[in-house]
Amino acid sequence: MSVPVLDLQGVAFAYPDGHQALHGVDLHVHQGERVALLGPNGAGKTTLVLHLNGILMPGLGSVSVSGLPVTKENLLEVRRRVGIVFQDPDDQLFMGTVREDVAFGPKNLGLRGPELERRVLEALEAVGMAEYADRPPHHLSFGQRRRVAVATVLAMQPEVLVLDEPSSNLDPASRRELADILRSLDVTVLLVTHDLPYALELCPRSVILSDGVVAADGPTADILGDEALMKAHRLELPFGFDPRFASRP
């Protein structure tokens, strides 16, 4: 088997106040996979995500990205390989124009000139926002800002795209447009979400994180269909949604 894009072994983490958020997480994600990370509030999903690019360092265990261990020396390369799209696009977009914002990441990687320009345009085209390049981000709609937030990370050509609640606060049309964009990208995806139909639509595989450990790992349809498992981890399907009858693209 190839080297996994994400390789977490026994990752444990406690916050400085003593709260133990992760109790030994093992997770492997391979190239080209789209994996949903599910779990109730407070399960440690966000803590786990912040371990993937070295914002947090595990107390025990190890994290590697395509074979490169996440350590202080490798931080810049790790952050290029792992692109995190945070939940609130206003946190991610902080520059005066969309173009400057998308250029921020690649500039930190040392790109300049026409190469930088090309990266920015490609990333904006991939999310269908190229015509908004010179607009200030706060004048865009919420759905557009979320798409630009995805572009800011795509411009760094990451090996894995990590999205934290990408469908939250989106109207159904924007939600579907984002799904189309994510499907069109040739990149490994880790989707952190409470939106279970979205997980089923986009990710063949799902992982349940509960109380700081991986409680289940398998095909999304099987996991969502296992009532006892779902109930044990405070996961509920929306009213009227049955994964057995949901059509998948």
Binding site: I55, F86, D91, Q92, F94, N108
Partner: peptide, 21 residues
């Protein structure tokens, strides 16, 4: 708190304390 989240998002895109020129 938003300031902290923005900083986090900047770090995640390789920010090292200096604005790239």
């Amino acid at each position: 708190e938003r300031g902290e989240r923005v900083h986090l998002a900047m770090l995640s895109r390789g920010y090292d304390g200096r604005m790239p020129r």
